[in-house]
Design a binder for these strands. Structure first.
Lengths: 231, 231
DNA sequence: GTCTATAGTCGGATAGAC
DNA sequence: GTCTATCCGACTATAGAC
């Protein structure tokens, strides 16, 4: 099965595009809902509205389909964060950024991350998040595809900004730890226990605005910029 | 299956204690490694060194065993956080705590949480964390047992401290959001991507000390206590 | 209380017609 | 490319001996 799954290369789909896509999108839903082992090929096929062997035909195996589903989410994340990440990279390539500008860029990254994590106006928002949580717990090899996307488009740029703001090297451990804890302020809202503490099933538009404001204020405090910064 | 699983009441074990415990401890390991669906009763029995029907005998069903495993972890968490939580509750029951004392209590809670999350000197540390992550992703009903423990012994006390420090009501949404983001600084280290960013497989004693120090400094900044506090 | 043996079901994958 | 029919192994759970 590993042989067939490994043979899959993203970007090359010589076969029925629409059928393939239908299977992939249904798979994200079903894998998220039932987990890898819990999602039977029969359920996957039925939910996609195709027959059983189609999965083997298009993805080689159940595992191949799973990897493709994770890879697809990785690409979505990469694309969704691309605009801010590129913007930050471009800004950092130039020299002599003011402290306020650096903070502003960091805020922009946090906003993008919040949108990725809690915003409901996303395609397959709930299932995507759930599938990521499952993949994270399952430690599957496919997980690297997600980690790479997040590292490249989120942790990398944020780390660079934090390093400049703290006037420390990027690889410095304290820089990394501070970057991670800053991002942790956001990731807590992936947790279902957090939502339960808030006493609601999901985060409202009003709460979202509160979260964004609180993140800015706290992140500024963490960075040590006591005076408020416009943006 | 639900009927039998529901029949189990914690604390009443009229049957072979040692066998029961062996199954329970092996189950935490196997459920963490393979997930609920991935963990077959055969594997569970083999790993525990018992025969297959023992699971039905002691826990009614596979699901009953799973719920018992989660409940067991919930009790461990509750007990592990009990000393600090009680200490905070007792301190808050009295009146007129200085700002520094409140912050000290909050630091103590964060230290306890860090120990719970990343400390290796725990019983079944890795599998316990993994099983929690899986349960969180799987949205199982048993999850409530974990949430209750964390709410009672961690989020509750921390929320009360943050409320006092910010001079806001406890139920206030901003109080809750700030409490959650503060705790989020810690939970990020449950994430495998975070460890990958740090470039290591698990967190060393030295990094642990750094994390604790950074958490204190940042939490103080978040709370708005600019001057350092001893403890 | 502990075990062997087995019932009954459902899983992933494939063969081969169209 | 798409489907029906089917193989065979693995699963949970139970019956009943000891």
């Amino acid at each position: 099965m590993t042989k067939l799954a490994a043979r899959y290369r993203p970007g090359t789909y010589p076969r029925g595009e629409d059928t393939r896509r239908r299977i992939l999108e249904a798979a994200i839903e079903v894998f998220a809902r039932d987990g890898y082992e819990g999602a039977s090929t029969r359920k996957l096929a039925e939910e996609a509205g195709v027959n059983l062997p189609a999965i083997q035909y298009y993805f080689g195996s159940k595992e191949g389909l799973y990897r493709a589903a994770i890879a697809h989410i990785g690409e979505q994340i990469e694309q969704q964060l691309a605009p801010v990440a590129e913007h930050v990279r471009a800004a950092l390539a130039g020299s002599g950024l003011a402290r306020g500008e650096l903070l502003g860029l960091l805020y922009a990254m946090l906003d993008a991350f919040v949108a990725l994590v809690v915003d409901k106006k996303q395609q397959q928002p709930a299932s995507r998040r759930l599938l990521i949580a499952r993949a994270e717990a399952e430690c599957s090899a496919a997980l690297d595809l997600l980690h790479d996307a997040v590292a490249k488009q989120l942790v990398g740029p944020c780390g660079a900004l934090v390093a400049k703001l703290l006037d420390r090297p990027v690889e410095d451990e304290e820089t990394v730890l501070r970057t991670l804890t800053i991002l942790g302020q956001v990731t807590i809202f992936c947790n279902k226990g957090a939502l339960r503490t808030l006493g609601c099933k999901d985060i409202s538009e009003k709460q979202l605005a509160s979260i964004r404001a609180i993140l800015r204020q706290q992140t500024a405090a963490i960075i040590g910029a006591v005076k408020e910064v416009a943006q």
